[in-house]
Structures are given as C-alpha cells and as structure tokens.
Amino acid sequence: MAGGSSINVLEQFELHPVLGGLGEALRFSQSPLYMIAAVCLVLAFLYFGMRPAAVVPGRLQAAAEVCYEFIHNMAVDTIGPEGAAFFPFIFTLFFFILAGNYIGLLPFSFTFTSHIAVTFAMAFMVFLLTVVVSLKVQGLRFFAHFMPDGASPFLAPLLIPIEILSFLSRPVSLSIRLFANMVAGHVMFDIFASFVIMLAGFGVVGDVFAIGPIAINVALMALELLVGVLQAYVFAILTCIYLREAVAH
C-alpha cells in the first residue's frame, strides 16, 4: 500500500528474502518463515495442551483432544479401518493448511496458502500418494477403475478419457480451490481497506462514509475465519476420499 497514489492489492503476495543475502541464496522468503511459525504454533498447542496428560482434561487439553478425535474420526470414517495408518498424514495436512490460513489473517502477516506453488505442491503430494497407495494395494487392477463398472463397452472410448481426465484434474482442482479462496479473501480485505484510505481524502464526509468499508472488513474477517477452516477441511476430506478409493479392494 506504500506504492504511491495507486494501491496494488497484489503487493501483499510478493515474496521477500529474509536474512538478506543468506535468504536469497537459500531461496528462503517470508513464506517458509510463516510455515515454520504455523508448524510451531500447532506443535506448541499440542505440546502444552497434552502436557498435563490428565484423565479429566482441562480446557487446552480438551481442545487438543477434540482436534485429535475430529481428524481421527474423519480419517477412519471416510477411509475405513486402513484410515488409522493415514491419520498422521491427514492430521499434518489439515493443521498445516488451517494454521497457514489463520496465521495469514493476522494484520501484517503473510498467507503461504495463497501461493499456488504451495497449494499445488501439497495437492500433487496427495495425488502421488494416492497413486502409490493404489498401485501398492490394488496392483494393476487400479487401471480398471478408469472404466466404470456396468457401463456399455461401446461407451469406453468416451468414458475412459473422461475418467482419466477427471483423475488427473484432481490435484489441479484441489490446489486451485484453496489458492483461489485465500487470494480472493485477502484481495477483498485489501480493496475495502483501500476504500477507507481513498475516502479519507474527502474530508469529514469521507471519514463518515469510511465506516462502511471498515464494517465490511470486520464481516469479511468473520467470513475468512469460516473459509479458513472450511478450506482446510475440504482439502483434508477430499484427501480422505481419494485415499479411500486407493485402499478399496
């Protein structure tokens, strides 16, 4: 927003090396820094929450246990009994995204889930994992899934490309969904905030009308809190659904 008269809403997504030359050499920007912060936040929450290890949990411990059981139930209910093995992965994924989304809502912070490179890397990791697990569990029968059961063989030339395309588009849709949601939310924050600054230039009348964009930003914050957890949940539950297909016999 320091870009003179015109306000660049995309400026907030720019990456800057931290620690000067060292960060530049190691390609270490504020994005990995916020990833580390998010990871530390989650680990600290779990560590201090579970430190009492009480039979009757306190508030923080109850919260940590709720998080554990929520993801555990999601993994086992969606994937099946094999879901317990994937549970740590789903937990990692969900809380990495959730902490990233929420830490980005703090003023002056950075949202690493607003970078398509990050979200696509995660989606591609899920995609590769499902392919590896599918091949491991089902062997070559995995490729039979591209021909739906009971479909007429005459439709095969049409169905098989469609199925392959929908399978390959999974990482794309998974990554763009999260990326677009985060970018859209933060751009809207910036746009409404810039309205406030523009209105401030019109004197007293502008000051009064500036209440509108501020109120909208407050409402947006509530919406973004919902979107943040919802997108993390969608990412995790879709991963579970893909993994269920992978472990299905």
């Binding site: 990456l15 190691l26 990833m35 690493f112 990050v118 890397a121």
Partner: peptide, 11 residues
C-alpha cells in the same frame, strides 16, 4: 527463485 523456493522449504 523465492516462489519455487517455498515449495522446497515447504516440503
């Protein structure tokens, strides 16, 4: 390089 770098660090 920072854009691709965050993928490596993220991994």
């Amino acid at each position: 390089p920072l854009v691709t770098g965050q993928v490596m660090w993220g991994a």
